[in-house]
């Protein structure tokens, strides 16, 4: 079984989000990059498939050299090899085109993307990649079990869960639930040492055009101060919610 996990390198969740260049570019100064949390759940699930079913796990990222530490971390967590497609990830469509061009020749049984990246929040690479490769896609995947030829899957839906079954090849959008938070693999010394020996291949991008262009960024307006209500005057809170905020 061959598994591909698509890895997006994103600013740490505590990062201050600022822009430079007249709000045309993200200010990466002082920002630490991490594996996109949704991708990390997916990677852990893939490593389990490697441990239990002997799957070969490849991680791939579209990005410049700055995303290599993240790929090394994935190798330390347990991926067998890494691929970096050497291009700026212009937009989700572009990334999907790059990943598809690479995956086309590799015959992966399972491709795992994250539900969404926490920076661009496109929620689109998985679906578009699946379409490129003519494979089915399951978004918001919270469960995956393999039983002989059948893959049992679960998707989180509004107000519940949906169970489905299919077969390989398939693309899924991973999120928490696919594995639990406590199951995430923290790389140990041995993993980190082994990662240095593993292959991190750099590929040239294919010819593709982004479908969109970020014209500029904007930050939400600063919030006014909170209105504090005395705990002994709950009627005032209700009054404010009813008559000032129109929220009741």
């Amino acid at each position: 079984m061959k598994v591909l996990v698509c890895i997006s390198s994103v600013p740490d969740t505590t990062s201050k989000i600022n822009f430079v260049d007249e709000n045309k570019a993200f200010d990466s100064q002082g920002v630490t990059y991490i594996i996109n949390p949704n991708d990390e759940f997916g990677l852990t699930r893939a490593v389990w498939l490697q441990q239990k079913q002997g799957a070969k796990v490849t991680v791939a990222a579209v990005g410049d050299a700055s995303c290599e530490p993240i790929l090394r971390k994935c190798l330390a967590i347990g991926a067998d090899n890494a691929v970096r497609i050497d291009s700026i990830p212009y937009d989700g469509f572009f990334v999907a085109s790059q990943l598809a061009a690479y995956a086309e020749g590799e015959a992966f049984d399972l491709i795992i993307t994250g539900r969404e990246s926490i920076d661009y929040n496109g929620g689109m690479v998985g679906g578009m990649l699946a379409n490129h490769l003519n494979m089915p896609y399951l978004a918001n995947c919270i469960h995956l079990e393999i039983e002989q030829e059948t893959v049992h899957l679960q998707r989180e839906i509004d107000g519940g869960k949906e169970n489905s079954k299919g077969s390989f090849p398939i693309v899924i959008g991973a999120q928490k639930g696919l594995v639990e938070e406590k199951d995430l693999i923290i790389p140990n010394m041995r993993g980190i040492m082994q990662a240095r020996q593993k292959s991190l291949e750099v590929l040239n991008p294919t010819n593709a055009e982004p479908s969109s262009l970020v014209q500029s960024y904007e930050k939400p307006p600063a919030k006014g101060p909170v209105k504090l209500v005395d705990p002994n005057n709950i009627d005032q809170l209700i009054d404010l919610l009813q008559n000032e905020a129109n929220a009741l």
Binding site: I17, N121, E209, P210, K219, P220
Partner: peptide
Amino acid sequence: EVKRSCFTNKAFTHSISNK
């Protein structure tokens, strides 16, 4: 051209479609 939220609601982009 649309405005969309990104960075999990910490910012917005003004984006243009090429198609």
